[in-house]
Design a protein around this nucleic acid. Structure first.
Length: 510
RNA sequence: GGUGCGGUAGCCAAGUGGUUAGGCAACGGUUUGCAAAACCGUCAUACACGGGUUCGAAUCCCGUCCGCACCUCCA
């Protein structure tokens, strides 16, 4: 079955066929770097990260271009407030965003162009549009602006299904509020805006100014990927006007279809409202990472189809603690997956994987897991179904481990079940790979979660170790009431105890 | 008003004409000194509402209701 993706342009799920067989050119609109990246950004970039990992797992070579908007009015404004150079503020925020996205498992895009280093391309693109009659220069008190003439492009509105007359009604009202009317049509949008001689800007044939928001993406995609790309992605809020304008610019210049497929991710919501910087209801990725494991966040995101809304719940406890219940639940699932893998590895040791004729129900699940995950992703990135495959595999794996304990007396059987366990380890890795899950070593995963959970609960490991040791002594002496009392005490602190024979281990609950 | 995205069992969430999605919670069982974890079972003939098409509809058609977003900067 081919890869199928929903295309906003046609409103249909279509077979994915890139322009060049085996090669995918992907452009994803990046972040405007004036503040920390929030959990909604994280959702979008995680979605496209899974798309990239998945397409690669399906054998495609993916060129993933994600821009950095480092020249923008918001950046200039924020920088001014802080007495910082705009590009310096942007560089700092970009570094943090990269760090946070890397932490949640997003692979570095192949290319990351910046506005500030693409000014030549933007100017060239703007000039081309002027020459072709799609853009015009307008005089303003600050100098010369360049606007795109929306009426010059017949296909305007085809992505967002809007027609110019309906749009004009809204735009005229806004203009009435005292804006200077230098545009020929209220819907025309800026390609280049003049700034005063003292403001942050770049020299151009039209004087000092800054590029408009939409032209930069057209120019960067053109420069890095060429005239036509396979997939263009971003959040749903970019459909209009940003992506509509990109189409108008790029197709007016080249005369060719810009992107074959347009993909848009749904919103992350808090209290049923879109999480947004402008609404002030956002939780940053940094906030998330302080409370939960990065893979728990990814698991949480993948639990809902990328086009639907995803509710990010925040619970404020009576004691003042703030938690994210959805992420907590996801983190328990990650604990489960890592614990499952640990048990498999402990059983398999370094035996070679194989598919012996044993535990056939489980063996079938192990054999099919990888392909089932890929098949789920074939269907417009159905990550919830992919996670259900992981759940099925986890169950089978744990069953293999518990059945193995009963086979120890029969060396031939035991070796066979160990081979199956080794296959399950491989299957788990293969099934997780396109999702970007279970990327840590067990050692790292348990260490980082332990450290974080101890910190959140204000506990320290040495105290717990001492209590657990004391309890072990009590158990050895068959003083079970003493042992149970200590366990109760620890449980109340959020510490879970696991007895295995005479020894006990512990972990902090989520 | 226009354009989209949603409304599925206690909760989260797949499915888009007939065949067990999955997870969480709860309860019962196997296991355990007792637990926990793990596994098995139950909850589950649920699909916003009203009509219609069909042998058969959560799924298609018509009409409503509700939530959210975009139409100005937004992933």
């Amino acid at each position: 079955m081919p890869v199928r993706l929903y295309n906003t342009l046609t409103q249909k799920i279509e077979d994915f066929v890139p322009a060049t067989p085996g090669k995918v050119k992907l452009y994803v609109c990046g972040i405007t770097t004036y503040d920390l990246a929030h959990a909604g950004h994280g959702r979008t970039y995680t979605t496209f990260d899974v798309l990239v990992r998945f397409l690669r797992a399906r054998g495609y070579t993916v060129e993933h271009c994600q821009n950095v908007t480092d020249v923008d009015d918001k950046i200039v404004k924020r920088a001014k407030e802080r007495g910082e150079h705009p590009l310096e503020l942007s560089r700092r925020m970009d570094e943090l965003a990269r760090e946070h996205l890397r932490a949640i498992g997003c692979l570095e895009p192949t290319v990351m162009p910046r506005v500030s280093t693409t000014i030549d391309g933007i100017i060239e693109f703007t000039q081309a549009l002027i020459e072709k009659g799609h853009a015009y220069v307008a005089e303003t008190p600050l100098g010369k602006d360049v606007y795109y003439s929306v009426r010059s492009f017949p296909g305007y509105g085809k992505l967002s299904r809007r027609n110019l007359d309906e749009l004009r009604a809204g735009a005229s009202e806004r203009l009435a509020e005292g804006a200077t009317d230098v545009k020929k049509d209220p819907l025309d949008f800026a390609l280049w805006k003049a700034v005063g001689p003292d403001a942050f800007g770049f020299d151009s044939p039209w004087g000092k100014g800054r590029p408009g928001w939409h032209i930069e993406c057209s120019a960067m995609a053109f420069k890095e990927l060429g005239e036509q790309i396979d997939i263009h992605g971003g959040g749903m809020d970019l459909v209009f006007p940003h992506h509509e304008n990109e189409i108008a610019q790029s197709e007016a210049r080249t005369g060719k279809p810009f992107a074959r497929y347009w993909m848009h991710g749904g919103f992350l919501e808090i209290d049923s409202e879109k999480m947004a910087k402008s609404l002030g209801n956002f939780v940053t990725i940094k906030d998330v990472l302080e409370k939960n494991d990065p893979e728990a966040y990814r698991y949480f995101i993948l639990g809902t189809h990328y086009r639907g809304p995803l509710s990010f719940d925040v619970t404020k406890h009576p004691d003042g603690r703030v938690t994210f219940p959805g992420l907590d639940e996801a983190e328990r699932r990650m604990d489960y997956l890592y614990a499952t893998r640990d048990a498999l590895v402990a059983l398999a040791g370094d035996i070679e994987p194989g598919m012996p004729n044993i535990l056939q129900g489980q063996a079938k699940i192990v054999a099919e897991a990888k392909e089932k995950v890929l098949e789920a992703l074939d269907r417009d990135l159905n990550t919830p179904v992919a996670l259900s495959v992981l759940a099925e595999l986890g169950k089978a794996a744990n069953e293999i481990v518990s059945q193995a304990a009963k086979m120890k007396k029969d060396p031939a059987k035991y070796e066979a079940v160990r081979k199956l366990a080794a296959s399950a380890v491989r299957a788990l890795a293969d099934a997780c790979a396109p999702l970007g899950l279970m990327q840590a070593s067990s050692e790292d995963y348990w260490a980082r979660t332990k450290e974080r959970r101890l910190r959140l609960r204000g506990l320290d490991a040495a105290t717990i170790d001492a209590k657990v040791a004391e309890r072990s002594e009590a158990r050895k002496a068959k003083d079970f009431s003493r042992a149970d009392a200590i366990r109760k005490e620890l449980t109340d602190l959020g510490v879970e105890i696991f007895d295995a024979g005479e020894t006990s281990t512990w972990k902090i609950g989520i």
